[in-house]
């Protein structure tokens, strides 16, 4: 099963933000194969959450492991049938291990979206 995790510039830690993460780790839990892809939404003016979510669903993942997620992105994932899990550790390895043991809870931290031009 393929899963996605937002990661920061170190490429070894989970990024606290989903939509603005620099990269996504796409991990295949069956083969143990990991790939890192760019998040094109980092440079987008508006709708970053949707663009980031689009990038992830285009990878055919079944689950997203993230500390938080915006409302719009969460809607895209819901429509695409992707389950969201809450990460508890900064370490990617711990996060994947916890997921495989079924220890991650469903994501609670869904925040309202910001309209295109920045916060209020």
């Amino acid at each position: 099963m393929k899963i996605a995790i937002p990661i920061d510039e170190s490429k070894t830690n989970v990024c606290p933000s989903f939509g603005r993460a620099l990269y996504f780790l796409i991990a295949d839990t069956d083969t143990g194969e990991n790939t890192i892809i760019d998040n094109p939404a980092t440079s987008s003016a508006g709708g970053a959450g949707i663009k980031a979510a689009q990038t992830v669903i285009d990878q055919n993942v079944k689950a997203l492991l993230t500390p938080r997620c915006g409302q719009n992105a969460a809607e895209v994932f819901a429509a695409a049938g992707i389950t969201l899990y809450q990460t508890v550790s900064e370490s990617i390895d711990d996060t994947i291990a916890a997921f495989q043991k079924g220890k991650l809870a469903a994501l609670q931290n869904i925040h309202p979206g910001f309209h295109g031009h920045g916060g209020k």
Partner: peptide, 23 residues
């Protein structure tokens, strides 16, 4: 349409575009 929209108001889900009206 999805690739065109620079406001990311369209998402491509399960083979069809879906509009996010607010964006």
């Amino acid at each position: 349409c999805v690739d065109f929209c620079r406001f990311n108001a369209l998402a491509f889900i399960a083979g069809k575009p879906v509009l996010f009206e607010d964006l």
